[in-house]
Design a protein around this nucleic acid. Structure first.
Lengths: 269, 269
DNA sequence: CGAGCAATTGAACGCTGTCAACCCGAGTGG
DNA sequence: CCACTCGGGTTGACAGCGTTCAATTGCTCG
């Protein structure tokens, strides 16, 4: 595990605990599931063991089958969780946006790679130190449970997309996801529905479970249908949110109305 | 929530706690992640709040978007976790075999249906009672974390299969899974690799993310290739485990050796 | 015996994976 | 400044897996 720039977090948020002010790392102000809005005492203890770690794009944050050494929160940038097949193919099983956390507790070796898709800043806790807080601060363990619950739900949702939707439909869903929780979603971008795909075409394809060629074609298709506007290869404007929503939900065939000619995969009355 | 046959569990396993013998429900003897091999005191408390519930095939154990009321362990039979689309299509995101548990803690409403695929016996704990034990018995909450970790890993694994493998490959993987942890896997069946698909073709298709027609064709295909023997529509004998293993791992094209002509989806050197 | 459901089989079409060529910008070096 | 290379991305042609539609079989049940 490479230690690229491990630093004590500089206090960003000042929180009143009785009459003492204690500095908290920036992740405590994100609506992260792990450390947002914990009790003052728990926040303080967590801040004690927090370390900021920076990675450049393309680095390995955690290798497959390696013992998980720490819990991490994404402060900025995007991580990709991926699995690699014997023949070298890679599948991305999840993207970690700012505010999301990763890592396993109780010495479980995870079977997935975590790599930085962009330059990334993380707020990390060593696993043992983190677990040690569970007994005194059950709320932290509860947060962990909630975080994992979210991860399970997200996995199930994406599983559904992979199994029942076409590439274009999955892409529509992904774009809408990016609009909601993507990098810079809380900036002025979201007003005009400008999205910034934080990954290259290869990763894009690995996430959607398809190929770069199909990605290209789907983008062109959505552009021709006036659903999106192509700014450049990584930036788009969503100009028909309803249409995209509709597309991501079930394709072209509604339950009632708008007799589309498109087909959705293995529909059966 | 229908209360079909809720009973106090009859003691099956007798455990020595000091000099008192306490009866535990049967699930405590399964290698379940939740209640197997807990400390005697924790086991005793858990047994206090355990209730056995029985469902017939096809009943709804937990409806989508409904507040989760209890934690459950599968004692016998099979549950299917499924999600339903607007147009009525269903996707099975997981099968719960004996020894596996389900349910959410901390008042999280799960977005999936849980229905019994066969007649089922469950060992259930009311959510509030279960959570109340966390403070006094952290080991129970830890088990919960481990169980959820397993669920996440399983979801990621299946996601990988859906995204990168053909229907036949997914089926090979599913058959091997059934051999390992399927119903009756610890009986004499496993010696001869007889497997018992506990779900109908429709569910089979919904699990593999395909159609009943493709299921049929894939089964016939595997039979012609001498990988399996068709006993009847739900019972098969795996006669070439290595071949199935190979098929489920990456399809017909190895990295080296055995120059197969088959193609696997979006392989790229 | 007919209705109804589960499952299989056949045929045709289409989404998409594969292969190949091309475009383009960045970096490099003469 | 230009030629070259290289990687990322796009476009086109083609084939194949798998969905869809349709027909058939076998079985259960009333």
């Amino acid at each position: 595990m490479d230690t690229t720039h491990e630093t004590r977090p500089k206090g960003v948020v000042i929180m009143k605990n009785g009459n003492t002010a204690l500095p908290l790392p920036a992740c405590f102000s994100l609506k992260s599931t792990l450390c947002f809005n914990l009790s003052p005492s728990a926040s303080e203890e967590l801040a004690q063991i927090a370390r900021i770690r920076n990675f450049r794009a393309g680095e390995t944050v955690h290798a497959e089958a390696e013992e998980v050494g720490f819990i991490g929160n994404v402060l900025s940038g995007v991580l990709r969780m991926q699995k690699t097949l014997h023949d070298g193919r890679q599948q991305i099983v999840g993207l970690l946006m700012p505010g999301f956390s990763f890592g396993r507790v109780f010495s479980h070796t995870s079977h997935l790679d975590i790599e930085s898709a962009t330059d990334v800043a993380l707020c990390c806790y060593r696993r043992q130190s983190f677990e040690a807080l569970f007994t005194r601060f059950p709320e932290i363990e509860h947060r962990m449970l909630e975080s994992m619950t979210q991860e399970i739900d997200a996995a199930h949702d994406w599983m559904l997309m992979l199994a029942t939707h076409t590439v274009t439909e999955r892409m529509a869903n992904f774009f809408l996801d990016l609009r909601r929780k993507g990098v810079g979603a809380d900036s002025a971008q979201s007003e005009r529905s400008l999205i910034d795909v934080p990954i290259c075409r290869k990763d894009f394809a690995a996430y959607l479970g398809t190929t770069v060629e199909s990605i290209s074609r789907s983008i062109q298709h959505m552009s021709r249908r006036r659903l999106i506007l192509i700014l450049d290869s990584r930036h788009f404007e969503l100009i028909d949110i309803d249409g995209l929503e509709h597309l991501s939900n079930g394709g072209d065939n509604y339950l009632e109305g708008r007799s589309g000619t498109g087909i959705s995969r293995h529909a059966r009355s």
